[in-house]
Design a protein around this nucleic acid. Sequence first.
DNA 1: AATTGTGAATTCCTTCACAGCC
DNA 2: GGCTGTGAAGGAATTCACAATT
Lengths: 217, 217
Amino acid sequence: MKTEKISEFTINRLSIYLRCLNLLAASGVTTTSSQALAEQFQLNSAQIRKDLTYFGEFGVRGVGYNVTELRAHLNEILGLDRQHRIGIVGAGNLGMALANYRGFEHECFQVAALFDKEASRLGITSRSGVVVHHIDELDEVVARQRIVIGVVAVPAENAQEVVDRLTESGISAILNFAPVRPNTRPGVQLKTMDLAISFESLSYFLSDSGQDGPTPP
Amino acid sequence: MKTEKISEFTINRLSIYLRCLNLLAASGVTTTSSQALAEQFQLNSAQIRKDLTYFGEFGVRGVGYNVTELRAHLNEILGLDRQHRIGIVGAGNLGMALANYRGFEHECFQVAALFDKEASRLGITSRSGVVVHHIDELDEVVARQRIVIGVVAVPAENAQEVVDRLTESGISAILNFAPVRPNTRPGVQLKTMDLAISFESLSYFLSDSGQDGPTPP
DNA sequence: AATTGTGAATTCCTTCACAGCC
DNA sequence: GGCTGTGAAGGAATTCACAATT
């Protein structure tokens, strides 16, 4: 275990490794190696080893990694051995889609509350029975429900205000879907999923397609 | 204009610069500089200049950049001066949320069709009247509607199959929301928005929040 | 005087290659 | 023999700093 600063690239790859291991475990594989993983899932074996050794020595030289053990380690490193309660601000199409997202159901992430400022949306419930509160109840509900992750699913104009209110409410991590780059206090983790950037990037590569010419000898 | 390979980081930042310029233009600003942009929007001025010069010399030394001109250039570079027709595969919560997403309405991206394999979803329409087709009509509808971007909004298990079918149908760019890393033919642009990775990354930073207190072994 | 465009310096990330261990 | 863990090398992205330009 190093005290070195660990890059977000590494953390994101740990999620990928964990997924690969879950697939292997599901098909009954008990032992694997960085090379085997790299080949099956198109990764780089040295990178797998380097990423893992930031957190410990999980392998056995000459043998490889025990799938069950490594899964357990990655789950713990990523904090997936705990419940994380989520509050979604914005009960429009996106907010409700996230609240109903089945990907959460079997996982450690649990949508515990929804918030909106539109009177017409108050009281609506998600498929699993989570109710839409007025945004003015944010502080109270976040505290009562022990919500730690806030999701911003409101229009760009309101995103900064919502981030500020979430921060005030004592939340420690925010996933923002609005196409803005909000300011946050240090200590509050912010991650933005920017649909507009993704589409515009695709648009760029459509325009100048033919980027990838034939590889020289 | 260089022939150098341009990184995706640069392209993504161009989207951000364009947004900033749109804000400036909306408040009547006609001229700006890399420093002014950097200060207002928390960017790095050298990076702005370097990013822009991959595509041309848009500034005037001693003066800065003309907001209207630079917007026009970025719009053209990103291909936002053209319509891009989108087909969404998967008419569940996420697919319908994307189809109804207002961010598209005033932009150059237009959702032209929805697809699903569930009989119960066929014929449903989005708010703007786009109808859900059976996935078997993909090839025909993609051709008829001149769809160039495919969106994958299906469960992980079906994502690779959908990517293959989209590729077969002649689409040139894919935005994937399933938590997998599908294989694509070279020439087809693929971008994955991985919710699971984002949440797991936030979870990680929640666990070890505050690099000051390392956990004992 | 002010700001761009850019080579050089720096920082960060990835890959190589091999010593060390099973 | 085979595989991990890792220092060193290589490559990419960012930032610095200044000559060139208006």
